[in-house]
Design a binder for these strands. Sequence first.
DNA 1: AACGATTTCGGTATCGTTCCCGATATACCG
DNA 2: CGGTATATCGGGAACGATACCGAAATCGTT
Lengths: 386, 386
Amino acid sequence: MIKCIKCDNVSGIAKAGQIREKQRYYCRHCDYYFTLQPSSPISATISSSHHATILDIAKQLKVSKSTVSRALRNSNDINEETRDAVLKMARKLNYVPNYFASSLVRRKSYSIGIVVPELITNFFPQFIIIAQKAAALAGYEVVICHSNESFSNEMEVLKRLFAYQVDGIILSLSSETKSLEHLQVFQDAGIPLILFNRVKNRTGFPKVMADDYHGAFTGVEHLIKNGYRKIGHIGGPKNLQISKDRFRGYSDAINNYGLELNHNWIYYHDLTTNGAKKCVQALLENPLEMDAVFAINDPAAIQLIIEAKMKGIRVGPDLGIVGFSNDSRSEIIEPSLTTLEQPLEKMAETCIHLLLNKINDPKFIIPNSTVLKTTLIERCSSRKTP
Amino acid sequence: MIKCIKCDNVSGIAKAGQIREKQRYYCRHCDYYFTLQPSSPISATISSSHHATILDIAKQLKVSKSTVSRALRNSNDINEETRDAVLKMARKLNYVPNYFASSLVRRKSYSIGIVVPELITNFFPQFIIIAQKAAALAGYEVVICHSNESFSNEMEVLKRLFAYQVDGIILSLSSETKSLEHLQVFQDAGIPLILFNRVKNRTGFPKVMADDYHGAFTGVEHLIKNGYRKIGHIGGPKNLQISKDRFRGYSDAINNYGLELNHNWIYYHDLTTNGAKKCVQALLENPLEMDAVFAINDPAAIQLIIEAKMKGIRVGPDLGIVGFSNDSRSEIIEPSLTTLEQPLEKMAETCIHLLLNKINDPKFIIPNSTVLKTTLIERCSSRKTP
DNA sequence: AACGATTTCGGTATCGTTCCCGATATACCG
DNA sequence: CGGTATATCGGGAACGATACCGAAATCGTT
């Protein structure tokens, strides 16, 4: 134990470089630097920089390392007294199990990978927070990757996760991803994979998602009930299921209420910030025929509000807008954005629980698709009268 | 290789449960389920679910595994021809190195831990994106943890990172963290640690941060130059360095321009959403004496704008507001928020590079403190005249 | 031709843990 | 008391990669 030569404190001492063979230290309590001769060989062997192993515990207790391993893993064929002694010694020696050795022999990493397409909106960060907490409760680490809406990035991070030998994967596809052949390797290796939010149908991979169809239907229905009649749409990449489902919800609502579905009022973008901007500008280029727009997500809807206001269009009275996902900005913007909230918490927990079930029991069958309800959040952007 | 019995495709075949001893498959191309007899023992031994090891490569090439290892690690004492042969075979066998075995023997995890206090604003997510990219370029994995502004959570994730044997740590303190004694263990183990953004002075730990003092000074100076005279402050927990530095910048600017520093105009909160709300409500409870507020961060400033508007106070003309960090909401809100932008990219890259330098060369000394310039973003919340 | 230097490779120990198998020792039962 | 069941533990082989040491083989030099 190093003691400060000024205030005699033993805690709060930090190493601060070396001078010749002498070690330089820094005391946090008295803000003082000092040097000490290197510790003697004897104390060096019990230096705290050396991690204690089960062998160290075994030697101290004169038992075999198998016994120590059993005691730590709380196996049942061990005497209670010896187990207590082992646990006590483990605490005393500050033992921390070596994750790599354990994973190597058990052929399990006790970690799961989460791949998200972006971290701009707060949808995915919040998903991650909840998922991480749920995974940690089961003793699993979470490795977070993001593809930045690029297919090649997605491939790359998945390759990394594969090399990392994660026990399972939770994936939300990038907007560029068209085929799922790059996921074959996980299927082959028997590593369970769940798609969420950005899913794809008929792929053999289980999926967890919000009820995009009904959400969209509800959103558009809400616009119609509020008196809007010429409702346009900002969609996403056609290869994504959410684009299809939300479009179907939109068009079915339009048809259901006997309105006209005008294909000139439908615009698509790639879900990036830049793409949304260009898309919205194209939509607003000519004199506006529509009186409302249902956008596939909040960033696009928010961009539309901004640009419409710049053009002098009164959002609400002149142009009703409904978004999707309830981004943190949608409450802030003026007029505030009506949007469909996704059940984030339930979605994240469902993903983790299904995946862990599958990991712990290969016979467990993950339901092909789990659909969770969305909630309409009515705000000002969809009100004709202020 | 499994072939679809309908369309004869070999790719896009997914396992879909088992029936007795028969394996059930699903073909993505023709959307068709079928079953096949289990593969023969011979093909089972070369089943793709078995990861190829260097020993497999060695056997195929009739060389030793040492040679294979050398070839893959691109060591210099190896013949070019044999190396090429090894690399070719590695590709053929779909070899992926076992991360755990490698880390075990090299006593390095090739991963670094990043701990952030929150993921609500987009400051930390963006930091993570950049840091992750920079680390990946150097072949390092990044393990992301968040403390949710709780000291006990911070302890816990740090313990996990320690057990995980990360090679280095980048940490932004939680708002509750008062002492840094829980970081001692990393110092003792020789694991480099860098504090960023939420730092603490005189601790012996190197820090990377924005120039909080000058940023705050500039922000308040900007308010003064725009005609505001009675400037209040919303601060953060007093144990955090950013709270102190930004307060100093605020008070020095006030004093420098001969204005009065009224301690009744200074409010503190704990940097949480709830805390900001309560703090702002306390500030607005009585008839407003101040004509401007400098807030320690954007969430507090945004909350102030919202509540002030609800009270009929015209933000800008009646009450000037300046925030800190340029959150994505600050551009959206009305009136838009004047704020100090932090050099996110530079901060993240600096952290990674300093840390990797230290990891790769223990003699490298990380500068005790790296301070990066902030930029004032002028928007509407600090303009008296619209 | 003899010798040393260099290149190239194989053998083997090692990292820290888990797991299987067998060896004791004790308990139990007829 | 003999024999079988059970509890408890030790020994050693994995897991897959790296690192060290020394052995061949090749090369260059005098």
